[in-house]
């Protein structure tokens, strides 16, 4: 994160150089054998990748997933086509990792949904005037459950387009589908999500 002028920085010069360098420069340095340049890429995109993976897969094993994404990215750097942005390419890897995880734990997901059902009874009812932190936590849980209600394809476009705010043309590249497909999936996903949220008592 850039710091304001005049504020002394506790960052070393190499760290500053990593922050200043653009993605392609860092990638070139990585390919030349400079592993520390990869730390710059991680610091730049790590949190966004983490957030996306969390929305797609949940909290279990999140650190492992993030590490898997960046290890795959490191190994695949020579295959990166510079016609696309690095972030789009990285999101593509993250999405692949997420889908691999979801397929692997499909049965576990079903069990988790079943287990999480009793939790609903302990949550406060927003229609009864819940407010403040409880309300925020409640709505976060409602959104989490509503996202879990969606199919993988629908959830992916909601997470990438609406939560991560990635342009639809980039989402099309990430998911390897036409832009029109992203639009139609988003249309359907929003409708399903709205219906699920309303079923849980949320008034939009």
């Amino acid at each position: 994160m850039p710091h304001s002028k005049g504020v002394p920085s506790d960052k070393s010069e190499p760290d500053m150089a990593l922050e200043m360098a653009d993605d392609l420069t860092l990638i070139d340095q990585c390919l030349a054998g400079n592993r520390s340049a990869f730390a710059g890429l991680y610091r730049r995109y790590g949190q966004r990748v983490r957030s996306t993976l969390y929305q797609l897969c949940g909290e279990t094993g999140l650190d492992d997933l993030v590490q898997d994404v960046f290890l795959r990215a490191w190994r695949g750097l020579p295959k990166f086509r510079r016609s696309a942005s690095f972030s789009t390419w990285l999101y593509r890897i993250a999405w692949n990792v997420a889908m691999d995880r979801r397929k692997k734990f499909a049965r576990d997901r079903q069990r988790e949904l079943t287990v999480s059902d009793p939790l609903d009874a302990t949550l406060p009812d927003p229609s009864q005037g819940a407010s403040g932190q409880w309300s925020t936590l409640h709505y976060q849980d409602v959104v989490r459950q509503a996202l879990g209600f969606l199919s993988d394809g629908a959830r992916s476009v909601i997470v990438l387009c609406d939560l991560e705010d990635i342009p639809q043309k980039d989402v099309a590249q990430i998911l390897n589908v036409p832009v029109g497909t992203v639009k139609s999936r988003l249309f359907s996903a929003r409708a399903a999500l709205r219906q699920e949220l309303e079923r849980q008592g949320v008034e939009l």
């Binding site: 957030s51 709505y139 939560l163 999500l193």
Partner: peptide, 12 residues
Amino acid sequence: LVAFLRQHQPVA
């Protein structure tokens, strides 16, 4: 809908 989702999205 999007505003609601962004406001209340689960935080990693």
